[in-house]
Amino acid sequence: MKLFSVEKPGVYTTFQDLGRTGYLKYGVPASGALDRFALQVGNILVGNQRNTVGLEITMQGPELVAEVDCVIAITGADLSPMINGERIHMWKSQTIRKGQVLEFGRPNVGVRAYLTVNGGFEAEEYMGSKSVYEPAGLGRKLEAGDELNGNPQNQITGIGLFHTEIPAYGREVEVRVIKGPHDHKLSSDVLEQFFTTPHEVSPQSNRMGYRLVSDGIKTDHEGDIISDAVPLGGIQLPANGEPIILLADRQTTGGYTRIGTVIGPDLPLIAQMPPGGTIRFKEISVEEAQELAIDQERIFRIWERIVR
């Protein structure tokens, strides 16, 4: 069923679910939503499975005309979403009526918003996922004139998060890092600089990774290691001293020294950082980080039960 026509595509709008599983060993990036929290919440709010495909909307949103009544939610960055020119609530399920126009205005807070729709979107599936990864020809970004199809099922609305449950994205964030695996190759000075100085987000940041400009770091190590798998959130430290945080579209393996890994629960903060924002890193143990991840999973499961 036709859900929306695309009047304007926005700057970079792509289908994303939670990404591909099982193909990293063949060199295929995982892809998937950069802000995994926002996509999963958006799906729960409209009654979908958490892994259902939604639209990831970057900075400047698209203009979509509803072809049928359907239940949507918008989560993630506040890019001033509007229906027929009127601001709508985020992090809340609501109905858009046939003929109404969903559009976005000025980006207020964050970089990436998610549009989820009850029943999900129809999109080409590659290797078990509908996430777009253009460099390998796995789908493409939205273009004007596209039709978005789906299978809306129920029409329950008005489900939302409490204020306190909505993430506080910002231009200055602190994220937690599990050290390693190559931290032993770095001097204690480099490690101290890394964990004490703020790092600025470079404009050359995208779904593959966030490049940081870090005045303080004077590296003294050889930048290269024997190539190994690069995890989500891995922080490379090349010999130029400018760290790169690797994200969903990262290459599966790499040959640069990695100082640590940003923990999953903190990655949405990175995904929502605009260029010029600053990041500080703080060390955390794997045990503490796993407790945070377990808590988050528990909360998702509770919300799922409430909604169903």
Binding site: I178, L232, T261, I263, V286, A289
Partner: peptide, 12 residues
């Protein structure tokens, strides 16, 4: 063994 974040482990 070394943790790569809270959801991956590297065996060297």
């Amino acid at each position: 063994f070394h943790p790569l974040g809270e959801a991956a482990v590297k065996l060297s």
